[in-house]
């Protein structure tokens, strides 16, 4: 039996959330409402928490934040403490958001674990050869 689809909400600084939602729409072609953007611009803590409450809807909800702490992370975690069927995932990136839109029917705990793994796996690093050489020389 499938779960009720999870409502996604991105809560982030400045225009990060709207940018991420635009990118997800461009790549995955989702409709409005699957993933809603919310900025903390101009919001005090109480106003931000009210906005998150409103946009989370009535069913299961997953709130993505850009940072683990700060006003966005704090509002998300406050909502998790007061609202059943709610989770927060901090450090949102495009890879995890794309995975989210195709797996919204998973139970919330399973979905969160999956997205954390997927988001982490999407982070890699590489340096050009000259940087690598310089690091090696410094180590010697």
């Amino acid at each position: 039996m499938m779960s009720e689809p999870v409502q996604g909400l991105i809560l982030a600084h400045a225009s990060v959330a709207s940018g991420l939602v635009a990118a997800v729409k461009q790549i995955a072609g989702i409709g409005d409402g699957t993933l809603r953007p919310l900025t903390n611009d101009g919001c005090g803590p109480d106003a931000l928490l009210d906005a998150v409450r409103r946009d989370a809807g009535s069913g299961p909800a997953l709130i993505f934040t850009d940072l683990v702490s700060g006003s966005c992370g704090f509002a998300a975690r406050k909502l998790v403490a007061e609202r059943p069927g709610t989770a927060v995932l901090s450090g949102a990136n495009l890879a995890m958001l794309l995975d989210f839109v195709f797996h919204r029917d998973l139970p919330l705990p399973v979905l969160v674990e999956r997205l954390v793994t997927h988001g982490r796996d999407a982070i890699t690093g590489a340096c050009s050869e000259d940087c690598t050489d310089a690091a090696g020389a410094a180590a010697r």
């Binding site: 600084h13 803590p45 700060g70 006003s71």
Partner: peptide, 11 residues
């Protein structure tokens, strides 16, 4: 600051 500890303060 209504937000107390947040990005502007820390960073």
């Amino acid at each position: 600051d209504e937000r107390l500890i947040h990005g502007q303060v820390i960073v």
